[in-house]
Amino acid sequence: MASPRKPPQLYEAPSSTVILGPALVWVGLLALLAANIGLTFLPLGRAKTAVNLGVAIVQASLMFAVFMRLNRASALVKLTAAAGLVWLSFLFLIGSADFLTRPMISP
């Protein structure tokens, strides 16, 4: 184990962004949470699932982008995160190929 050394400071973040940036996102996340709960009790019919999930995805994206700093991440890291989602979509898309078409055969 090498001895501790002074990490080179590659960029200077002004102190205000330490709290202010995340705080704004935090407020936004809580507002979205409230909105999502509110939307649950609106008569949206069949669109409700999509609306609920849509709000959740916006919340998740905010977390990914700001809290997890994908917005400032290297292309490689962005690609890695995308790979997880893309492979997840393989599971959903190809898996659904069975479940969605099965009723067409045996109603």
Binding site: I94, A97, I105
Partner: peptide, 21 residues
């Protein structure tokens, strides 16, 4: 290799449309 898993399930009762894919 990730798109082919259903060929283990041709006789399982899986949808034939999925089987074709």
């Amino acid at each position: 290799g990730f798109f082919v898993w259903g060929h283990h399930m041709f006789v399982s009762g899986q949808s034939p449309y999925a089987s074709i894919v």
